[in-house]
Structures are given as C-alpha cells and as structure tokens.
Amino acid sequence: MRPESTANLAMLLEDARSVGASDLHIIAGRPPLFRLVGELLPHGAALPPETVEKMLLPHVPDRLRLVLEREGSCDFALDLGASGRFRVNVSRQRTGYKGSFRLISREIPTLESLGLPADIAKATHHHQGLIVVTGPSGHGKTSTLAAIVDIINRDTTHHVLTVEDPVEYLHPRKKALLSQREVGTHTKSFASALKGSLREDPDVILVGELRDTETVRMALAASETGHLLVSTMNTQSAAKTIDRLIDLFPPGDQAQVRMTLASSLRLIVSQRLLPSTDGRSLVAAAELLPGSVALGNLIRDNKTFQIPSLQQRGKSLGIVRFDDSLAELVRSGRTTLEHARVYAENPDELEAVVTGKRPGSPPEPSPPDGSKPLLSKMGNLLNRKSA
C-alpha cells in the first residue's frame, strides 16, 4: 500500500483491490479503513473533514445531490475505468461525511469460483417459480445472483430483466438478452419496475432485494405467471425466509401467500462467509432448500416449524443443511473447526460430526477390579452345570 494514496480516492481504491479488501471506508477524522477477511484495518493518517468532503462529493451523481442533502445518505454505483466498479454509500455523520465503497469483481463470478454447490444451477432450468438467496449483509448474496444470471446468460436464449439498486455487475452479451435497470435512474422503485416488467416479455426477472410487502406481492405474482424470479433477502436461514415472506402480509392474506409459495418456490440458498484456514480469505458455507412436494405441504399446512425435521432426512431431495456444509469445509481443510463453530446452528453436533465423537462425553467406564473374581466364579459355576 502506498502512503501517498491516503488522500487520493482512486489510489485508495486501487490499493484496496490490490490487497484483496472487500470494502473501503472513508470517514472524516479517521484514517481510511480496509475490510480484510471481515476485519477493519487502518491505512495511513486520519483524514480531515474538508479532505473527505472533496474526495466524496464530486462523485455523487447530480440526481442524488438533493437526496443526500434531504435524507443524509445515498447509494450509487461508481465506475472508475481501470480502477474497476464499486457500490457506494455516501452519508453524513457526527464528524462529517462518510463513504463506504464495496469493491465489485472485474470478472463475473461463477458458482465454482465462489465455492458454492453446483446443484444451485439446476434451479435455473425451471421456466417459472421463485429462487431466493439469503444471508446477512456483506456475505456474498449479490455475487451469487450474478453467478446465477451468468448461467442463464451463457446457456439459454431467455430475456433476462434485472432491477437493481444500484446495478453492480455489468453482464456481457452472450446467448441471452439482458436488460439491466437501476432504481432511481431507469425506474422509480422495485415495485413499479416489476409491474412494468410483466409487459416486456421477460423469461427471467432478477430483483435486487425483496424489501417490502408490495415488492414481494408483485414478485409472487410474477413467479406464478410464467416467469422465473430471482431475488435476495436478509434472513438467517431457509426456514426463516419462508416465515418472513409470509409474515410480511396481513393475516387475512397469509393463507393465499402460503398456497402461492407452496407451488412456486424452487430454491432457497442461505449462505455465510467465514475465514479460511490460513485466515487470508473467505470461504462460503451454503444451506440449500429446494422446492418439493414435502416442503410444499408443510408451507401450505402452516407447519413451517417442521422444516428442520424435513432437512434432517431430506438429502435425497437435494437438501443441504447449513451445518453439513460447514462440516464439509472443515473436513476438506478449507476452514477450521473453531471458525465453523462460531457460525454453526448446533456447534456441539458439528464437532461430533467432524471429530467422530461427542464432545465432552465421559470415557467408557472400565470394570472395577473386584468384578474379575466374581466373573471367574460365575464361569466356574457355569462350567460345572454344563458338565
């Protein structure tokens, strides 16, 4: 990293990319911070508020200047040519302005490069339905969406329409027709874009995030009417994603939503990023819950609390439990048991699967010394009877 890059945004972003950072934070009164393997590390001297303002404000698009002034923050994509593409949030806070830059890979990721199961690609073969990628913020959901879209772009002649806020990955022209729309630039909102998209003859619709009831309602309607809809949610597991989708609606509508989900759900991918064994990179653990008759029945009958039980016995249905994915990462040496336990739903069970023994279990008791004469006496007695 170059010391002279501290007050130069383009050089800072180049340095962040060269060291493998996922994010760059620029805050008034603090040194620039690189996020490396989940940790924020300072680089250089603290930046005065005036310097930060000069670094950030020229890059805010004209259409968002009033939004930043009125609401205190705004989101946009920034393309700096040779330095690459970035998702940006600029906001005001106590010491002045703050900029958060998410580095976007120059190459479109693949499921293999992300370390995700190849079975995810099977869901793209459906001509209609709903695919949801879930997980906490910053755990690779957008990259997974890009990999799914790239599969469709490479292998089919479908019309793929994306609605994003902002557009992050720019997909090159391949076999499919891609229309990428940005909220605020090309459309007013996710919901209005979805409403209009149904008249644009799409085969696949990608919605950046299912944020509110109106967007979810339109997405479910699209998934029922001959479209494959792909989106994300910030939920912790596949089962909680289903509950969240239903709970967004008032009680009077939930029975119909359950019916729609039961028939249209094709796949839920719930993923996390955790440190690798050497601590220099991140590896992905993923839970897969494909749509099936058994899952549909649980959703329809309002028995989603039984989904964990279905996951226990559902390997033949293509189900992958999150802890099983963690165990495979540990067994293959890509992460450590200590890292995996932090993210596991049941850490003790994970350790038992990986080590082959129940942690904390007492050793098998050995027979007391006094039992040996007793056993020999019983043997003599049995011998006499048999004689």
Rank of each mutant, 00 (worst) to 15 (best):
D150P: 10
S231D: 05
L282G: 06
I268T: 02
T124M: 13
L382P: 02
D247K: 03
N302S: 13
K377T: 13
D119T: 15
I120K: 07
A82Y: 07
T51N: 05
V257A: 07
P49A: 14
I148L: 15
L228S: 01
T156Y: 04
A46S: 13
A284D: 04
R217P: 01
C74L: 01
V207T: 10
L24T: 07
G318N: 06
T157C: 04
L228Y: 02
D165T: 04
S5W: 08
A344R: 07
H25Y: 12
A219R: 01
T185V: 14
N234T: 13
G360S: 07
Q254N: 02
L40C: 06
G370E: 13
T110M: 02
P61N: 11
R313F: 07
N383D: 14
S270I: 09
T336D: 09
D79I: 00
E224A: 10
L265D: 09
A340M: 10
T304F: 06
K175C: 13
H127V: 09
I246R: 04
R70P: 08
D203Q: 00
L36Y: 08
F322H: 04
L194Y: 10
A262L: 11
A239H: 05
A146T: 05
E224K: 11
S137R: 09
G135Q: 11
H43R: 07
L282Y: 05
G196A: 13
T51V: 15
G370Q: 11
S270C: 07
P109W: 02
G252I: 14
L198Q: 10
R173W: 12
G72N: 02
L78D: 11
G84Q: 10
E200P: 05
G356F: 00
A77W: 00
K174A: 12
S309T: 12
K240G: 09
Q236V: 15
L145H: 05
T124H: 11
Y169V: 10
E50S: 14
L248T: 06
E4W: 00
G370Y: 06
R384P: 01
T355L: 15
R87D: 05
P251K: 07
V67N: 13
A284L: 04
L245H: 09
Q256W: 03
P365N: 08
P251R: 12
L298N: 00
S73L: 09
Q180V: 05
I246T: 11
E39G: 06
A7H: 07
R358P: 05
D348K: 12
L229A: 00
L47R: 03
I152V: 15
A255P: 00
D155E: 14
H125A: 14
R94M: 06
M378P: 00
H59F: 15
Y169C: 06
A123D: 07
K240V: 03
I104S: 04
T277I: 09
K372Q: 14
K141Y: 04
S309I: 11
D79M: 02
E351C: 03
M259Y: 08
E209C: 09
R217E: 15
T187M: 13
A118K: 12
D203I: 03
V88Y: 08
L229R: 04
C74T: 15
M233H: 06
V216T: 15
S179Q: 14
S325P: 01
N297T: 11
D247Y: 01
A238Y: 01
L267I: 07
P58T: 10
E112I: 07
I104Q: 11
K303I: 01
S366P: 05
A121S: 14
K385E: 12
L80I: 03
T187K: 10
Q254E: 10
